Simulated scan of single mutants.
Amino acid sequence: MAPQRNRRPGFSRRAQYVLFLGYVAAALGALVGAVLLILSTFDPPAYAVARGALRELTTPVSSGLHWVRRGLASIPEGVGDYFGVVGENQRLRADIERHRGTVARARQLVVENARLRRLLAVRDRATETVAVARLVSASASSTRRYATLNAGHWQNVRSGYPVRGPEGLIGRVVETSPNTARVLLTSDPESVVPVRRTRDGAPAIAAGRGDGLVDIRSASVANLAFRAGDLFVTSGAGGLYPPGIPVARAAADSRDAAQARLLASPDALDFAIVHRPYLPAPTPPPPPQAAAE
């Protein structure tokens, strides 16, 4: 015959001990409650003392539990703040990389602004306009580049005077007659103009090529790097051309020398402005006989 089944399947001795201890705890709780009830009814001062003692015992426990609960509750917020800080850091790094070029351009503008302020502080002694004359003709196909002005020495135009247009430098006067003047254009192979680069002030020389372009060569640093779009203006060196007149713009990236396109095209101009030289010509020394006298 099959054995009789256990009426309490899977009920271990440990479970029995736990159940027994639960009963004991419940009985003790009921007993303590009854004692406190009796004290609160018949002896309120003793009840107050017991209540204070119980409070002293339970306060540290409740404080510790409150601290643990608060720490556990702050974990999700801390994790969210961490990932938020990481995302913000990444966005700030991206902003820094995106604005790096803007900062570099701003620094270049600061340098250029300082140079322009220094130029404004210089007393310009050679920008006096001598004449405004019409460009009668300009050689566009010959290897020698000249232009003709309908103003000569009767209009106080002299050989060596610089000539410019609204966009930039045209050249210099090399020959005059009563009412005409011959102008050597900047693109002529015999033309050499001291210039400087606007973004950093690097000195250079603009030499004509005879084909409408000029070669820009560094005057101070070997193997200087040129970038497409670099603007060159007259530097005032040599005392002929006033400083700050636009001359040419680099056509491509290169080193040591760069081809540049002139900003002023004589073929597209109707009028030109003739200035006096930037610095007066040096006084020639007296002859030896006059010096001895």
Rank of each mutant, 00 (worst) to 15 (best):
L65D: 05
L65T: 05
L65W: 10
H66Q: 14
W67N: 12
V68C: 04
V68R: 11
R69I: 04
R69S: 10
R69F: 06
R69Y: 08
R69D: 06
R70K: 07
R70A: 11
G71L: 09
A73H: 03
A73T: 02
A73Y: 01
A73K: 02
A73N: 02
S74F: 06
S74C: 04
S74A: 15
I75P: 00
I75L: 15
P76G: 05
P76I: 02
P76S: 10
P76D: 07
E77P: 00
E77H: 09
E77Q: 12
G78P: 02
G78Y: 13
V79E: 13
V79Q: 12
V79W: 09
V79N: 06
G80K: 07
G80E: 13
Y82A: 10
Y82C: 04
Y82R: 04
Y82D: 03
F83G: 01
F83Q: 04
F83Y: 06
G84M: 01
G84W: 01
G84R: 07
G84F: 02
V85H: 05
V85D: 11
V85T: 11
V86E: 04
G87E: 14
G87N: 13
E88P: 00
E88M: 08
E88D: 08
E88I: 07
E88Q: 11
N89K: 07
Q90D: 11
Q90H: 09
Q90V: 11
Q90G: 11
R91K: 14
R91D: 11
R91L: 10
L92G: 04
L92F: 09
R93E: 11
A94N: 14
A94P: 00
D95C: 06
D95R: 15
I96H: 04
I96S: 03
I96A: 08
E97R: 15
E97G: 07
R98C: 01
R98P: 00
H99W: 09
H99P: 00
R100Y: 06
R100P: 00
G101Y: 02
G101N: 08
T102D: 09
T102H: 10
V103G: 04
V103S: 06
A104G: 09
R105E: 11
R105I: 03
A106T: 10
R107D: 13
R107V: 06
R107N: 12
R107K: 15
R107M: 13
R107A: 14
R107Y: 10
Q108W: 03
Q108N: 10
Q108F: 05
L109W: 11
V110C: 05
V111M: 07
V111D: 05
E112F: 02
E112V: 02
E112Q: 14
E112P: 00
E112L: 04
N113I: 06
N113R: 08
N113Y: 05
N113V: 07
A114C: 05
A114S: 12
A114L: 13
A114T: 12
